[in-house]
């Protein structure tokens, strides 16, 4: 008996490299457009250019967490290793994106609002969400790699979905409002719009690449565990003989 098919780690397919190239190209394009073609904003000045990557990071964080919740839900219904890997990868990349959104936000806010931090709904929501998925990744890194821990983590991610809504309600009743620019047509300049959507595309492709890479790591780890068990079993069999 040689390697079982489950222990094979596939090489990176063409689609991976396509996303990789798209991420690299779009990032350069978005950077160029944001810096050289999009005009400087009238009242905030050059610091507004943070927007072209701050908002895409926050958007991809939310998208990744939703994917994580859905994958976990699927895993609870039908435990498939691929869903679990997807959930781990999206949670970790989502935490990274949340970190970007939460560090670049205050730098911008200092110029735009006059404070680094304000307890304001979207900011609070992003912070609480990031903490929730930090808990998920902590559980996955320190909780062990057994089946029970995977199910518990899936349960946590599923429980996180209604919490997103409830936290949103709570913080909106508690505090004022975040600037809503994109969906209310506030991007007046066409070059600003292009730079922004290029940023969204670039960060989106990057998120896909990072998630892909991270879930490959998870697959390789599972294969190592499996082979180690395999080897131990063979040793035991030999001892019996």
């Amino acid at each position: 008996m040689s390697d079982t098919p489950t222990t094979q780690i596939s090489t990176r397919p063409f689609a991976y490299w396509a996303f990789f190239a798209a991420a690299a190209g779009l990032s350069l394009l978005a950077l160029g457009w944001g810096f050289f073609l999009a005009p400087v904003e009238a009242t905030m000045g050059i610091v507004q250019k943070i927007f072209y990557f701050h908002v895409p990071c926050a958007m991809s964080m939310q998208a990744l967490f939703v994917v994580c919740g859905l994958a976990s839900f699927g895993y609870l219904i039908k435990p498939r290793a691929a869903l679990d890997r997807l959930a781990v990868a999206t949670a970790e990349v989502g935490v990274l994106m949340g970190f970007f959104a939460l560090t670049t936000g205050p730098l911008w806010a200092r110029k735009a609002w006059g404070h680094y931090w304000e307890w304001e709904p979207r900011l609070t929501l992003t912070l609480v969400l990031a903490f929730m998925f930090v808990a998920y990744t902590a559980l996955r890194s320190f909780g062990g790699s057994d089946e029970l821990t995977k199910r518990i983590a899936a349960g946590l991610a599923v429980a996180g979905i209604p919490a997103i809504y409830l936290v949103r309600v709570a913080v909106t009743w508690w505090r004022g409002t975040h600037p809503r620019v994109v969906w209310s047509g506030g991007l007046t300049d066409p070059d600003m719009r292009i730079a922004f959507w290029l940023g969204v595309a670039a960060i989106g492709c990057l998120a896909v690449v990072l998630t892909w890479e991270r879930s490959r790591l998870e697959a390789a780890r599972a294969a190592v565990d499996e082979l180690t068990l395999d080897l131990m079993e063979r040793d035991l069999l030999e001892d019996d003989v």
Binding site: T43, Q48, R180, D189
Partner: peptide, 8 residues
């Protein structure tokens, strides 16, 4: 709180 970005 800006809701609109304008070119300078």
């Amino acid at each position: 709180y800006g809701t609109e970005f304008e070119a300078a």
